[in-house]
Amino acid sequence: MSDATLQLATPSLAPPRATPPRLGFLGTGWIGRHRMQAIAADGCATVAAIADASPDAAAQAADAVPGACVVGSLDALLDLELDGLVIATPSALHAPQAIAALERGCAVFCQKPLARTAAESRRVVDAARAADRLLGVDLSYRHTAGARAVRDLVREGALGAVYAVDLVFHNAYGPDKAWFRDPALAGGGCVIDLGIHLVDLALWTLGWPAVRRVDGRLYAQGRALADPARQVEDHAVATLELATGATVRLACSWHLSAGQDAVIEAAFYGTEGGAALRNVDGSFYDFVAQRFRGTARATLAEPPDAWGGRAAVAWARALASGARFDPDVERIVEVAAALDGIYGRAEVGP
């Protein structure tokens, strides 16, 4: 879909609901439970049902939201004729589970990545369009106050022509579940786990310029990744060349000795100044945003900022207001295509 089409298109709307939408939650590990509690606390939707491969996890989640029933499968959730489904399962399951829900007329909010590849992501988006149902993806860094302040400066032209973007996401620990290290289940390693957030954030901030060329280098335990079908990367560097002429540089990793829990940064440099979102003292949750003019800097946003559940709440509120398919979700396919380029899975650009 062209930029012009996306700018003109608007989400289709049904009349606002007389009662809050009834939601099901598929997967209630830490992330799934956190999003569930955020929506429940907001009151924009009702937590109606829960399913998880772990009965203990499902029971713990149900204890936090009295009135929700526990069922044993996705099919059992969909048989309840829910209004929406929140998916927080292993990545390989996202696309088939989302498509199954959408084809049953159920809106979907899915953990990132929506799918392992751009082709899989396209199938999910096409299913949402065919069903005319709201589809959201938990790319939550867009919802930090700092990221929005930086985006506003860029979109207003306050930084001039942005020509360089530096993205960094180093996690000192790495994931704690075995499936993250299985290429078939995860779709990749630290790039699809961490880098996806910052690639999305950069393209969103810049107004979705086309990605013309991508070059990626993947490593495992300090050596070039030998067999991506058998091993995932724990360190990666990549360069994205944009249609605007800007260059985006990405570095991300698991288990990097950086002297703190995490290093997270998205910095934008233009002809009239710069701006950056950076984590504070190694935190995964606290961010400061600053504007740069030469050697001077000014703070745009700083903690506290309880942003973790905002993407899920925004989706649930939109669902409650009657929103159906939103064409802006097409952008998720563009992000997935950029990641495919980093992984060498597909050509990017014309």
Rank of each mutant, 00 (worst) to 15 (best):
A127I: 10
R123L: 13
L114Y: 02
A118Q: 08
R104H: 15
Q111E: 15
R122I: 08
A107E: 02
E120C: 04
A101H: 04
V108P: 01
C106K: 03
G105H: 11
A119R: 14
C106R: 01
A131F: 05
F109W: 08
I99P: 03
R104C: 12
A128M: 10
L102F: 03
G105L: 08
R133N: 08
S121R: 05
E120Y: 07
V125S: 03
G105Q: 10
E103G: 13
L134N: 00
C106S: 07
C110I: 08
I99H: 03
A100M: 07
L114S: 00
R104Y: 10
A98M: 09
C106Q: 05
K112Y: 07
A101F: 02
E103K: 14
C110H: 05
R122V: 13
A101E: 03
L134W: 00
P113Y: 07
R104L: 08
R122W: 07
R122P: 10
E120W: 05
A101P: 05
T117I: 13
A115R: 02
A101M: 07
E120P: 08
R116K: 15
R129N: 06
L134C: 08
A98W: 05
E103Y: 04
C106F: 05
I99N: 02
I99G: 05
A98P: 09
A131R: 00
R122L: 12
A100Y: 02
G105I: 09
A101R: 01
R116C: 15
P113W: 07
A100C: 12
D126M: 13
A100P: 05
R133H: 12
R123Y: 10
A100K: 11
V125A: 06
V124P: 00
R129G: 04
